[in-house]
Amino acid sequence: MKKPTGSTEAMRIEDLDDAGLVEHARQRDSAAFWLIIKRHNQRLHRVARAVLNDDTEAEDVLQETYIHAFTHLAEFRAEARLSTWLTRIALNEALGRRRKRRPTVDVKAIEGMVAPFSADKPDPEEAAALAEIRSLLERAVGGLPEPFRIVFVMRDVEEMSIEETAFLLALRPQTVSTRLYRARRLSLGS
């Protein structure tokens, strides 16, 4: 998939909501595919990384998620938001990969959670400060037990609602709230 070049069609399509993008993608509009990826990539990467605790595997999950989503786009009925549907696909893929892991697999050192489509390039001082903050956050989040880590990322990093998080993880909303509370306490060292 190529990124659209500054055509008027690309400018017009950027104003579409997700439902409009889905319609264009169903018609094989490559600009619509690109924008769907651009809009949802960071969230999906963070969710996959929260499950797998590995950037490389999270990137593989993203590829599989988009392949699955785009080949099954006709099945998307808009009963849920596109972001919820994509997150569910990514979560299923990540959980499936985690189940298949051999117990001897080492977890890679955290290198940062920068989405491949990030357009913002801060100045060097700001970039260094952000990298340090990101590293501290990732170490704290990466050290959480997996059930707490996933809830923490979905709620506090991706700002999903309790209901959406509960739906995606097949949990009761009260369980999401409890896990989030415990994750926050654990990450603060309390």
Rank of each mutant, 00 (worst) to 15 (best):
K2D: 06
P4I: 02
P4G: 04
T5F: 11
G6Y: 00
E9N: 00
A10E: 12
I13E: 10
E14I: 00
D15M: 05
V22M: 04
H24T: 00
H24F: 13
R26I: 08
S30A: 08
A31E: 03
A32S: 07
A32M: 06
F33D: 13
W34C: 02
L35K: 01
I36V: 14
I36A: 06
I36M: 14
R39S: 03
R39N: 08
H40M: 07
N41A: 13
Q42T: 03
Q42K: 10
H45Q: 15
H45C: 02
H45P: 00
H45S: 05
V47Q: 02
V47A: 10
A48M: 02
R49W: 07
R49D: 13
R49N: 14
R49H: 14
A50D: 06
L52Q: 03
N53M: 02
D55C: 01
T56I: 03
T56G: 09
V61D: 04
V61H: 00
V61I: 12
V61T: 13
Q63I: 00
I67V: 13
A69D: 07
F70I: 04
E75N: 11
E79Q: 13
A80G: 01
A80S: 15
L82P: 06
S83C: 12
W85Q: 06
L86H: 11
T87Q: 02
R88Y: 11
R88S: 14
A90M: 09
L91Y: 15
E93Q: 15
E93M: 11
A94L: 13
L95M: 14
R97N: 03
R98I: 03
R98M: 13
R99D: 14
K100V: 01
R102C: 04
R102Y: 10
T104I: 05
T104P: 00
T104W: 09
V105L: 09
D106M: 05
D106T: 08
V107F: 02
A109M: 07
I110S: 11
I110L: 09
G112I: 01
G112C: 02
M113V: 01
A115P: 04
A115S: 15
F117H: 08
P122Y: 03
E126I: 01
A128K: 12
A129S: 07
A131I: 00
S135D: 10
L136W: 10
L137D: 07
R139V: 09
A140Q: 13
G143M: 05
L144E: 07
L144R: 09
P145V: 09
E146P: 01
F148S: 09
I150V: 15
V151G: 10
V151T: 14
M154L: 12
M154G: 08
M160Y: 15
S161H: 04
E163L: 13
E164M: 03
T165S: 15
L169Y: 02
L171Q: 14
P173D: 10
V176R: 11
S177I: 08
S177V: 09
T178V: 13
L180K: 06
L180T: 01
A183G: 06
R185L: 15
S187R: 15
L188K: 13
G189S: 07
